[in-house]
Amino acid sequence: MHYTSMMALEVNRLEKGTDRLTGKSMSAQPQKATERAESELIAEAKAGNGDAFEELVNRYERRIYRLALRLVGNTQDAEDVLQETFLKAFEHLPDFREDSRFYTWIVRIAVNEGLMKLRKRKSDRSEPIEDAVDDQGQVMPREFRDWKPNPEQLLSQEEMERVLLDAAHKLPASLRTVFMLRDVEELSTGETAEALGLTPGAVKARLFRARFQLREELSKVFKSEKSLDL
């Protein structure tokens, strides 16, 4: 394939919000005809219907768990974040004004819970929460060796999960969170800014740095032995 065609294909997939590996839609709101409308479930849950709230939980619990795990880095803390997120969502559901997606609203709760968990942990060991460099800080690539082909096939699932978590936790939480919301959860720049209390410009600046810092970290694991033949 001509290289420009390949780039066009990549960006097409990224822009359309499809799963980058399977090409399947990753829409936050399932579209099966038999599924009840989210607004209907929210209205019933607000009126005190536990079954309706549980149906909302069923829709998003896996994504919230994955987000929590990527943010806090271990299953025990991720479970705490998951539970606190849905307990708080249940308690505060009457305050949900439905001017944003329900998913964006619970993501905001989950991120706050995750960051609180990290702050508590900070006293135990040195883990950067905030970035030492401002949003204008310069990042330049240092690693130019290509990766081995198909890195996802080089490691077991557990090993790959560990590598990805370790790399993500080399970043300050302020960058890691933006990457997870924008590139993994596919929230828009505006939704991410709203969830984190940032300006859209700050989201873009942090995403830029997060993407390239993660690339540098993963390059240490996946780089090929061969140098580029220039």
Binding site: M7, R66, L218
Partner: peptide, 26 residues
């Protein structure tokens, strides 16, 4: 070639984190 590597591996970085098979909820 350098920028091609940076571009390709940045796309791959995002793809790896987006793999829906990883981090299943027990």
């Amino acid at each position: 070639a350098h920028c091609k590597v940076v571009f390709d591996t940045t796309v791959k970085t995002i793809e790896l984190y987006c793999d829906g098979k990883l981090f299943p909820m027990p």
